[in-house]
Write a protein that binds this DNA or RNA. Sequence first.
DNA 1: ACCTGAACACCGTTCAAGT
DNA 2: ACCTGAACACCGTTCAAGT
Lengths: 235, 235
Amino acid sequence: MPRTRGRAPAGGRADALSPEIVVGAAVALLDERGERGLTFRLLAERLNTGAGALYWHVANKDELVALAADQVLGQALAAVPRPENGTGLRALAVAVFDGLDRHPWAASHVTAPASLPNGLRLFDRIGTLVARTGLPAERHFAVATAVFYYVTGVSAQIIAPAVTVGATTDRASFLARTAERWGRLDPAAYPFLTGATAALRDHDDRDQFLAGLDLLLDGLSASGRSTAADPRPPT
Amino acid sequence: MPRTRGRAPAGGRADALSPEIVVGAAVALLDERGERGLTFRLLAERLNTGAGALYWHVANKDELVALAADQVLGQALAAVPRPENGTGLRALAVAVFDGLDRHPWAASHVTAPASLPNGLRLFDRIGTLVARTGLPAERHFAVATAVFYYVTGVSAQIIAPAVTVGATTDRASFLARTAERWGRLDPAAYPFLTGATAALRDHDDRDQFLAGLDLLLDGLSASGRSTAADPRPPT
DNA sequence: ACCTGAACACCGTTCAAGT
DNA sequence: ACCTGAACACCGTTCAAGT
């Protein structure tokens, strides 16, 4: 991925292209039309170039989307509240969820093995916070990974469906239709779902993310307490 | 989605098409070539038809992949050990992870709002098991959702990357390369990652899934204990 | 070094026409 | 009711040729 040297382009355009500019325009397009709506032709048109020119700055569409998601994650990380008292992990996780929630296409592309700068930064910050708990050192990596996977994986699950749904119908009517369907299921086969229609209709996505997160963090502090001295009071 | 009535087809083929047959062939193709390798033309060729014929049985590619993933989930659910003592949730989660692990393309398509039979079954079984813990009833839905999201979301995160990687290089050398990259990062900026290269190299994906799962379940039993009588001994 | 323009090799999906 | 075959309207990606 080459860097622009700041020279003006040969053609008539005043602004040279760069990976940053291409990725930025891709984020805008993804926000507007989703992943399927991102097209090299359309993106090139908006940047006043040909589609071929984009390949000088990004390797292919997969890389472009991954870079776009990493940029969104970077914005989310910048919004993490600095004062890291005892609730650092929770605040970090919530900020990432909220950041990704504004760009529904992004969540599923934030992964550890992508090894992009902000993905690594997120992993490192989680790991650093985990290391500050009372957990024995040999568990730090597994626990940090668990939190990372929870934040990225569960965010993707919660946020992504809205993309598919969003265009056609709004959230409330979608939930209402789903609840109706659950209500018509055979109670003998689906004893839980048939009784959970009200809860489904009234639930808040962000609260769901928080409920699971708190369960995970409770388990973390419980396991820290049982295996080593816990330097902080339970949350 | 029409059902086949069992009549022989008009043409020379002995076996009539049906949604089940189409989805079954799609699973085989997805296993072989991944999501991008699944093509209506190629699938039609294998079924000795034209691509257009498939649209009589499935609405489009999105539905086809969703149905294929649900079929895989069905196989995973069939493998859940029946004796549901106190560890039912854990055994259920592990069976689903292992089942999805055999079909890496599937995990990211197992979602609650898809409302396909096996997705609903999974959700219901989780909910039923959650309801048997000591949790107050008003928390059942949120906790069941958290476990469902953990199982599907984290499985997708852990399993999916292998698809991208798999073809080019094997897991071990991929981890080695990633560990090397982490090792070269600035320790001031990435204090945790630079010290975690050995853990990265040696980790087992399934253990990672279990570590987070146990954290979550520990949190569940801890929160059950603090809010209501827990009918079962802690695991 | 960076961009243009057009071509290549595909896709998913539709649909008149058949049986 | 189910299938055929071909067409439509796109895609991502490449690459000679320009500046």
